[in-house]
Lab assay of single mutants.
Amino acid sequence: MGFKLLSKLLVYLTASIMAIASPLAFSVDSSGEYPTVSEIPVGEVRLYQIADGVWSHIATQSFDGAVYPSNGLIVRDGDELLLIDTAWGAKNTAALLAEIEKQIGLPVTRAVSTHFHDDRVGGVDVLRAAGVATYASPSTRRLAEVEGNEIPTHSLEGLSSSGDAVRFGPVELFYPGAAHSTDNLIVYVPSASVLYGGCAIYELSRTSAGNVADADLAEWPTSIERIQQHYPEAQFVIPGHGLPGGLDLLKHTTNVVKAHTNRSVVE
């Protein structure tokens, strides 16, 4: 069995187990497998329904001669939608809004960016022009300005110390501490036991640490421990890039980060 097929099978099995364990909360999309990078042309966006009122959005972007996937989250909030992270750029984010209108038909009224990198804030200006209120932590807003990236308009308070959590509509926002970046936030959907790890969490097929220019490698494993301790009931975990899975993604990420750190020390 090929690795790609095995990865998709694991996603399907995880979703099936969740649907059985929580039949009222989960209505997993039966329309197909989780979209992969090879299936999404740059400039297009796919939506994948995880649970009743919960979707991931998947886009792709060219970077350094390669094409990478990027995940975000959409959560229903009454007759409105909360968006977590842009679709990595203005063109993708405009396509995301169009796809949401086509498939869901509810307005996106608020959006949260989970850290300051372009795959999370690139497209904020498109959201703002569409009347979406954009939010991020003060740290993310400051770092985005320093980096020359787009800056969300509103500040999220109460997320300055490791372990801080605040309720934001249908989700809980959690600051686990520094990891992929010093400002990275985690998003949890309690009604569906869905954990969105953003770039602080890796997919299972990833074996290298990737972009760690703004990471705190020493603190990252401790931050992941905080996530595990705060959300032990999480059933569906979405990484910032690639295929979702279960809580095993947290341990896998820790292993990859520690291996990278150990290699760096040896070198």
Rank of each mutant, 00 (worst) to 15 (best):
K91G: 13
S137R: 07
A19P: 14
E39R: 11
I40K: 06
N184C: 03
G210W: 03
S70Y: 02
G43R: 06
H154N: 10
M1C: 05
V75F: 04
D118A: 10
G131P: 05
S22G: 12
R226L: 09
P41H: 12
V132P: 00
N71G: 03
W88P: 00
S205K: 09
T134I: 03
A87I: 01
S223R: 02
G32E: 09
F168A: 02
L173Q: 00
K91W: 11
H230N: 14
N184R: 01
E157M: 12
A165H: 12
V237Y: 02
G210F: 02
P23S: 10
L143V: 05
P69I: 13
H241W: 01
A144S: 11
R141Q: 13
L5C: 15
A95K: 12
P232R: 10
V42K: 10
A51N: 10
V266S: 15
A218E: 14
T60K: 08
A59R: 05
G122F: 01
K251N: 11
A165V: 12
S155W: 08
N211I: 06
S113L: 04
G78D: 14
A25D: 14
E150R: 01
L185Q: 01
T153I: 11
Y188T: 01
L106N: 08
D77A: 07
A51Y: 08
G131Y: 04
A179G: 11
T14R: 07
I100M: 06
T153Q: 13
I58F: 10
I100H: 01
V265Y: 12
E33Y: 08
L24Y: 14
E80P: 02
V11G: 07
T60V: 15
T253A: 04
S56L: 15
L82F: 07
A95M: 14
G105V: 07
Q229P: 05
G32D: 09
Y202D: 07
P221D: 06
A87Q: 00
L5M: 15
I100G: 01
G197F: 01
V28P: 10
R167V: 11
L243W: 08
I84P: 00
S113Y: 02
D216P: 02
Y48M: 15
E150I: 04
P190V: 06
I40P: 15
T134E: 02
D164N: 14
M1H: 06
F116L: 04
V194L: 09
V187L: 03
V42H: 10
Y175Q: 01
V108E: 02
V187W: 01
I17M: 14
A209T: 08
F63W: 06
R141L: 10
D29C: 07
S223L: 03
S137V: 06
E147N: 15
K91D: 15
V146S: 14
S193H: 11
T109E: 07
G240K: 03
H117G: 00
G246H: 09
A21N: 14
Q229I: 10
E203L: 00
V171A: 05
A234N: 00
L10F: 15
V37D: 15
L6V: 14
W55T: 04
S264Q: 10
L106E: 06
T109D: 06
N71H: 02
R226Q: 08
R141T: 06
N262G: 12
N262R: 11
Y135R: 01
G158P: 05
L127M: 01
S16C: 15
G53W: 06
Q228E: 13
I227M: 12
T36L: 10
A51S: 10
P41D: 13
P152H: 04
P176R: 01
D248W: 06
L249W: 03
S264W: 08
K91N: 14
V237S: 01
L9R: 15
P244Y: 08
K258S: 13
L6I: 09
A209K: 09
D85V: 00
I50W: 07
V266H: 11
V124C: 03
L159H: 06
R141G: 03
T86Y: 04
R141M: 13
A200N: 01
L195A: 01
I74K: 02
F236C: 08
I84N: 01
L250N: 03
T86H: 00
F168W: 09
A179R: 03
S113N: 06
D79T: 09
L247A: 14
I58G: 04
V67E: 15
D119M: 00
S191H: 14
V28I: 13
S223W: 01
R128D: 11
R110Y: 15
G163S: 07
K102V: 13
R206V: 15
R141C: 06
T93S: 02
S139E: 13
R128E: 11
S160N: 13
P35I: 08
A209E: 06
S205W: 08
T114F: 01
V257M: 10
R206L: 15
S137N: 08
Q228M: 14
Q49W: 10
I17K: 15
T140L: 04
L81C: 03
H180D: 01
W88I: 00
V28Q: 09
E99Q: 13
L47W: 03
A165E: 13
G72F: 05
E150S: 04
P221G: 09
Y12L: 09
A136H: 05
A165F: 13
S31K: 09
G65F: 06
S193N: 12
A94M: 14
A130H: 12
V265F: 08
G32Y: 14
G131A: 07
P69F: 09
A130C: 06
Q103S: 14
S139K: 11
E80I: 07
G122V: 07
G158F: 07
I74L: 08
T93P: 00
Q235N: 09
D79G: 10
H154R: 10
A90E: 12
L156A: 04
S160P: 07
F3G: 10
V37A: 15
T222Q: 14
T60L: 15
Q228V: 13
Q228K: 15
T114D: 00
T182D: 14
R167F: 12
L250S: 01
T134Y: 01
A15G: 08
V45R: 03
A179F: 04
D29N: 09
S193L: 14
R110S: 11
G242E: 06
E157W: 11
Y12K: 15
T109N: 14
A178K: 13
T114L: 00
V42W: 05
L159K: 04
S161Q: 14
L247D: 08
A90C: 03
Y68V: 10
P239T: 02
P107G: 08
I100L: 08
E101G: 12
P232G: 12
L127S: 01
I224F: 04
Y48A: 15
I17E: 08
N262S: 13
G163Q: 06
T153R: 10
R128T: 12
E172R: 02
L5E: 14
H57P: 02
P35N: 07
P232Q: 09
E39H: 11
I74Q: 03
A111I: 01
A15M: 10
K4Y: 09
V112C: 06
V212M: 08
I238Q: 02
A259I: 11
P23R: 12
P170C: 04
V126F: 11
A218P: 09
V265K: 11
S139Y: 10
Q229R: 13
K8T: 15
I40E: 07
T182C: 05
H154W: 13
H260L: 07
V237K: 02
D164A: 13
L195S: 00
V256P: 04
A144E: 04
L204R: 14
G242L: 02
K8M: 13
G158L: 06
T109R: 14
C199G: 02
Y196N: 01
I104L: 07
T261V: 14
S137E: 02
G169W: 05
S7K: 10
E33C: 07
S208G: 10
A66T: 12
S160M: 12
N211S: 05
G122S: 09
A90S: 11
E39F: 10
A179W: 04
P239N: 03
A209N: 15
V257C: 01
V194T: 06
V146Y: 13
I227V: 12
E203S: 04
E233K: 14
S193C: 05
L243C: 08
L47Y: 01
Y231F: 10
A179K: 02
V108K: 01
D64S: 15
K251Y: 11
T93Q: 00
R263G: 14
A209L: 07
L217Q: 06
S56T: 15
L81M: 08
A129I: 09
L81P: 02
S205N: 10
T140P: 02
S27I: 09
I238T: 05
D183T: 00
L204I: 14
L217F: 05
E267R: 12
I17A: 14
R263Q: 15
Y231L: 01
T60E: 05
G242A: 05
P35R: 08
I50H: 09
Q61I: 05
L9P: 13
R167T: 13
I58W: 08
R128C: 07
Y48T: 14
